[in-house]
């Protein structure tokens, strides 16, 4: 059997009295894009920190390319690249200097570092900015430089912690293309995201993390099937949610949902929208409890 690129089993981590990860188990196959989907505070960054040897778990095991993150951190570090949430580039140095410095630290010769830096600047469309200090870069450029740095020695497993958070739509598209090209290179990509659409666009496998648990995993198609199709919402003039009805996406389901709106006697603006991450959680957890009109939210019209 092929060694999984990442294998996590029974992972637990508590900060103070707050359990951040509570018995997390999953596997990532080599060469796939794996998206860990979850809201803020779900434990996504903690999980990446454990896998990249920054944080020790309280219990459970985690391996990268078969190397245990606790027993053999050096072997793990040789296999991975990490692009963090707060892009960690050296702002005082130029893009080119950043790349050459990292190349040297990875043990490339001076000339190989320079050649590799030029190559990556080219690939990530940073040639124009190569001699400018990273401090002057836009969010998207900085993220691309960050990603380029983590690719210096072509690691087989890449961790991307919310790679597109805070980027404008165009930069997000560009970064998505880059991530797809990483898969074409044969690398395993482990990314975290808050956006269902991102997971849907990129991932072969998605796992949903909520309050330290993996509450669902599978292909994006399978995940969306759990959520259903479009969502019918009724809001009052102030924008408060009065009623929310997930549908299975069919015309029949939509009609049934609208009939239910009628029957409920609720009056307001009706909109139909695509399912969001919130809907995934509504469908997968009891997170909907406590919201407005709980008795109406979370029922699927069929």
């Amino acid at each position: 059997m092929q060694t999984p690129a990442i294998a996590v089993s029974g992972l637990r981590k508590t900060f103070g009295t707050h359990p951040v990860l509570n018995d997390v188990t999953f596997e990532v196959a080599p060469g796939e894009i794996f998206a860990l989907l979850g809201p803020n505070g779900a434990g996504k960054t903690t999980l990446i920190n454990i896998l990249s040897t920054l944080v020790a778990p309280d219990a459970g095991t985690a391996t990268v390319n078969g190397f245990d993150v606790g027993r053999d951190p050096l072997a793990v570090r040789r296999s991975i690249g990490l692009t963090g949430q707060s892009a960690a580039v050296d702002e005082v140095l130029t893009g080119s200097e950043n790349l050459r410095m990292m190349g040297r630290l990875f043990g490339l010769s001076r000339s190989a570092s320079a050649a590799r830096a030029d190559e990556l600047l080219e690939r990530f469309d940073l040639v124009q900015a190569a001699r400018k200090r990273a401090k002057t870069y836009s969010g998207g450029m900085r993220r691309r430089l960050d990603l380029a740095i983590s690719l210096i020695v072509a690691p087989s497993v890449l961790f991307l912690d919310e790679p597109t958070t805070g980027l404008d739509p165009r930069s997000r598209q560009e970064l998505w293309n880059v991530i797809r090209s990483l898969k074409e290179d044969g690398r395993t990509v482990f990314l975290t995201t808050q956006y269902l659409e991102e997971a849907d666009q990129l991932a072969d496998t998605v796992a949903v993390l909520n309050e330290g648990h993996v509450v669902a995993s599978g292909t994006p198609a399978a995940l969306k099937a759990t959520v259903g199709g479009d969502v019918v919402e009724v809001r009052d003039r102030a924008g408060n949610l009065l009623l929310q009805l997930p549908t299975d996406g069919s015309i029949h389901g939509l009609r049934a949902a609208i009939a239910e709106v009628d029957a409920s006697g609720v009056d307001g603006d009706v909109t139909v929208r695509e399912p969001s991450l919130d809907d995934v959680f509504l469908a997968l957890t009891d997170a909907g409890a406590g919201h407005a009109a709980p008795e109406l939210i979370g029922r699927t019209a069929r």
């Binding site: 990249s52 040897t53 920054l54 050096l74 570090r77 040789r78 991975i80 990490l82 963090g84 707060s86 892009a87 960690a88 580039v89 050296d90 702002e91 990292m102 630290l105 990875f106 740095i149």
Partner: peptide, 13 residues
């Protein structure tokens, strides 16, 4: 603060 030390710590150095 800016996380570059964390980046160095994920490298084999």
């Amino acid at each position: 603060q800016n996380g570059i030390v964390d980046r160095f710590r994920t490298m084999p150095i």
